[in-house]
């Protein structure tokens, strides 16, 4: 599900089934030489998270990306964000990012870090295959969360 009126209404009626929130952590860099790389990372992460959403629509909600720059990146904010989302009824909050910085936080929050793959120049089928491969990295994390309880 997406963070959209229709989906949120459905979520509120089916809270017992939709117990997971996925939050993309998106690093923005506006330096002349890094902006392209930054946008490429974002494009990859957005495509991947939409793909995850499509596969697990009925169990998770894809939260709009949490974006930050180097100076607004803060270790304190993410655990609070997690807490707030949990208060909304999501049992599991999983952050997904291409920014290595967040792996430090792995003890406090669930972070899936994936190296970005520049998919923007790829042909449709190759792109799809890559995203499927990446999805396979994410599925075990989700299922281990779901079977824990």
């Amino acid at each position: 599900m997406y963070f959209q009126v229709k989906d949120v209404q459905q979520y509120q009626q089916n809270k017992e089934f939709i117990d997971t929130a996925i939050v993309p952590l998106v690093y923005l860099d506006f330096a002349e030489d890094k902006m392209v790389k930054s946008s490429s990372d974002v494009e990859f992460l957005m495509s991947l998270t939409s793909f995850i959403e499509q596969q697990f629509k009925g169990r998770l909600m894809l939260i709009p990306p949490f974006s930050y720059t180097e100076s607004t990146r803060s270790e304190q904010v993410v655990p609070i964000l997690k807490k707030n989302i949990q208060e909304g009824g999501f049992k599991h909050v999983i952050f997904i990012t291409c920014d290595h910085y967040w792996t430090n936080l792995q003890k406090e929050v669930d972070v899936i870090w994936l190296p970005a793959i520049p998919i923007e120049s790829m042909d449709k089928d190759v792109k799809k295959r890559i995203l499927e491969e990446q999805l396979k990295q994410v599925i075990p994390v989700l299922t281990s969360k779901w079977t824990q309880q």
Binding site: F17, I18, Q54, Q55, F56, G58, R59
Partner: peptide, 21 residues
């Protein structure tokens, strides 16, 4: 149920399986 994608023989043989619920 809630719109996930089902897989063929994802869990048991000869059935479609939805991993969500």
């Amino acid at each position: 149920h809630l719109g996930c994608t089902v897989n063929w023989e994802g869990d048991r043989p000869n059935e479609y399986f939805c991993a969500c619920h």
